[in-house]
C-alpha cells in the first residue's frame, strides 16, 4: 500500500490482490459459512457518509416509520471502527475523496458499500472540475440506488437487496469499466 500515490492507484491494486470480478455463489459452502452470513446480515451497523440532499433523505428515514430497521437502516454509528456497512449519499468532490477513502480503510472487513443517489453513483448532473464521477473509482461499491434523492421505498429495497447479496456470499468488487478508463 506504500506504492499508492493517488486514489486511482488504490482501485488498480485492489483489483490485483482481491477478486477480479463478482462471484455470486448460490450454494453456501458449509454450515459455518451459512451461520456466519446469517449473523452478519442480522447485525449490520451502518455508517452514513452523507454530504448533501441524500443525507437529509437518509436522516428522515431513520425515524423508523418504514421497515428495514432490522437490516441496519436505523442503527447508525458515526464511527468507522464500529460499523460494517457504509452508505454513501451525496456529491463527493475531489476535496472530500481522501476522507472517504480514509473512512473506508479504517473499517474492518468484512465491509459493504451502498451508493445512494445519482451523485454518488455517477456524478449525477454535475460533470464539472471538482466532482468525482462516481464513487466506484475510489472504493468498491456493492449496490446502487438510483434516484435524486431515492424515495423511502427505494432505500428500503436497497437494504433488502444488500441482505440477499450477503446471504449469497457475494464479495465486493470494482465496476470494471471505470478502472480501465482510469477515471
Amino acid at each position: 500500500m506504500s506504492k499508492v500515490k493517488t486514489i486511482r492507484d488504490f482501485a488498480k491494486i485492489e483489483e490485483e490482490f482481491l477478486l477480479e470480478k463478482l462471484v455470486l455463489t448460490t450454494k453456501a459452502s458449509g454450515l459455518i459459512d451459512w451461520l456466519k452470513r446469517r449473523a452478519q446480515v442480522n447485525s449490520l451497523w451502518t455508517f452514513p457518509f452523507g454530504t448533501s440532499c441524500c443525507a437529509l433523505e437518509f436522516m428522515s428515514l431513520s425515524g423508523g416509520a418504514q421497515s428495514g430497521g432490522e437490516l441496519g437502516k436505523d442503527l447508525t454509528r458515526h464511527s468507522p471502527e464500529r460499523s460494517d456497512l457504509l452508505v454513501v449519499g451525496g456529491t463527493i468532490t475531489e476535496k472530500q475523496a481522501p476522507i472517504l477513502k480514509g473512512v473506508y480503510e479504517k473499517m474492518e472487513s468484512p465491509k459493504w458499500v451502498i451508493a445512494m443517489g445519482a451523485c454518488a453513483a455517477s456524478g449525477g448532473p454535475y460533470n464539472t472540475y471538482s466532482v468525482v464521477q462516481g464513487v466506484s473509482s475510489i472504493i468498491p461499491v456493492d449496490v446502487y440506488i438510483p434516484g435524486c434523492p431515492p424515495t423511502a421505498e427505494a432505500v428500503v429495497a436497497g437494504f433488502h437487496l444488500m441482505k440477499e447479496r450477503i446471504l449469497k456470499g457475494a464479495q465486493r468488487g470494482v465496476r470494471p469499466e471505470t478502472v480501465e478508463k482510469g477515471l
Binding site: 463478482l22 461499491v141 449496490v143 446502487y144 440506488i145 438510483p146 427505494a154 429495497a157 437487496l161 447479496r165
Partner: peptide, 12 residues
C-alpha cells in the same frame, strides 16, 4: 413506479 436499486454489475 419507483426506480429500483440493483447490483453494481447490472447494465444501468
Amino acid at each position: 413506479e419507483i426506480p429500483s436499486p440493483g447490483h453494481f454489475e447490472q447494465n444501468w
